[in-house]
Design a protein around this nucleic acid. Sequence first.
DNA 1: TCTAAATGTAACTTGACACTTACGTAAGTC
DNA 2: GACTTACGTAAGTGTCAAGTTACATTTAGA
Lengths: 113, 113
Amino acid sequence: MLQTILEALVETRRREILGLVKYRELSAGEIFDYFAPYNVTRPAISQHIQVLEKAGLVSMRREGTRRLYQARPEGLSELKTFLEEYWDEGLELLKNLAETEERRMVSDDLAER
Amino acid sequence: MLQTILEALVETRRREILGLVKYRELSAGEIFDYFAPYNVTRPAISQHIQVLEKAGLVSMRREGTRRLYQARPEGLSELKTFLEEYWDEGLELLKNLAETEERRMVSDDLAER
DNA sequence: TCTAAATGTAACTTGACACTTACGTAAGTC
DNA sequence: GACTTACGTAAGTGTCAAGTTACATTTAGA
């Protein structure tokens, strides 16, 4: 769901987590270690990870007592679709409008003579 | 700012507003008229529009007492950059991983003989 | 099987934000 | 200049989510 994806991404800390597990698998503990200096507790990080997982933005596999997480780019596909709908179509539209406007101004010029 | 953009987009109603002014300019009042059946007040809509404007997602021009709004696709460029960083690079990475994995499995097969 | 390690879950507190009502403001109209 | 139209802004309120502390769960090892 696009809504779920956006809710997951709107939190800076969750985007940071996503950045950490983008290129490599990391355990929950390793992710926490990264944020420990920032004065945040382990449960807070754990809860952030759950949000990312439920949004389909990270995958998880167990290895012994550890849980290894990694980014799941496909999870962003809905956001990508949404964005393209505005970016590609939107820019195209603006371009056409600008051209139409230009033609109109040129014909105004001609009409003046 | 990416943060501001995401905060603007995370609200369903704001995405709906963005959808309304994607292809055509609409006045604040016209936007409100669209949502009136949904039992929401005019100030609420007005505040949503301000959030969108501050995030650079809509542009505004005055025409008499009216204010006309329109979607501004370029406002999404930071989000687009963020997304591509995960989508394109991320998928590329996964593909490479999968191929590496495949080679490993093949060599395992060979080793079995 | 007792213990330790790694992690998730529950319950609660607090701060932010999306509403509401009430009011302010600027541009047209008589 | 008073009135109306079309808005934005201020102040207050309720809800929800992000954080905390405390507890539960699962796996590995002596």
